[in-house]
Nucleic acid binder design. Sequence first.
DNA 1: CGTGGTTAGGCGACGAATCACCTAGTAGGT
DNA 2: ACCTACTAGGTGATTCGTCGCCTAACCACG
Lengths: 175, 175
Amino acid sequence: MILARLILGLLTLAPMTGYDLKKHFDSSINHFWNADKAQIYRTLNKLVEDGLAVVRVVPQENYPDRQEHHITDAGRAALAAWLNTGLDAEPVREPFLARLFFSGELERENVMRLLRARRSEVTDRLEEYRAQRAGLGDVSGYDRRAYLMAATLEREVGRTEAELKWLRSVERSMP
Amino acid sequence: MILARLILGLLTLAPMTGYDLKKHFDSSINHFWNADKAQIYRTLNKLVEDGLAVVRVVPQENYPDRQEHHITDAGRAALAAWLNTGLDAEPVREPFLARLFFSGELERENVMRLLRARRSEVTDRLEEYRAQRAGLGDVSGYDRRAYLMAATLEREVGRTEAELKWLRSVERSMP
DNA sequence: CGTGGTTAGGCGACGAATCACCTAGTAGGT
DNA sequence: ACCTACTAGGTGATTCGTCGCCTAACCACG
């Protein structure tokens, strides 16, 4: 359901193929969502079935035809309707914390290894976010649309920094 | 899969019924996981099938029998094996950011309403976490097990504070 | 006396998501 | 000549998760 909305949102930026969408999920919006390619193609089919998008086949030389999906007026309306509904409850899922919570029986060194592995991962992620942010340039002076897109990235930067700080503190003071 | 591990982890703390487990997911570990009760019961059955847990029926007066699930040695081994594997990739899913990212076409006031609703929710959550933390008392001087359990909560406090800070900044400077 | 919450366990249907695999041509590197 | 990656689009199986519903007795409130 939410994947359908996200795809509609991306289609407002430009008409796209399933392949294009997958690339967006893997790069530009990877800080807040990801999706399996099989699921993207299935969801696109459903959007077309429901009249929220239409396909235009664009033949290419030397490459497979592009099945460009264009959002329809009904699609734009469905997207707007979603954006104006109240916030829904978000399921909490933190696999790393799930591990750490039960790691008390492990030897101290093994827990430290876990924490260091996590820190390395989180540091890399932070680097990626910062590189992405640098690619956006100066946000002030942007319109609301660009501002909000940059803001979502900023939120992840902030929360990732908070985790790094926490990780260092745990590594320092764990008994 | 991960749910099975979490349940095994909880069963190391004490033998539990599906009902008990559900309460834990809703309270003590709600800062990093939640689970549907139907799924909990199904997973418990699978654990028993796989020999990772055994059931002991405890009859009660005036109340339904308790089907206490006890972790077995095989279960403890499976849990330890999981805890010693490398970190696996975590899927990113931030429904709120997904909305905000595409909210650029909304009127400014509607976006502000969204941000304020979020801030109210996040503030409540932070209060809950802090109350839970207060209930744990002083962490220093604890053993590693208790320390790590408290630390997972601390991580969420930190990241929630980071989001609040970010929310206030966005509310202040959104064009 | 009825209503709603607690304890305890469950089923069935559906939808969402993942995993592995497949087609098929182009292009670049070793 | 071979291997890998990129472009583009899928299928099928299976698992995971949610939603709604059901049984059944107890307890407290008004």
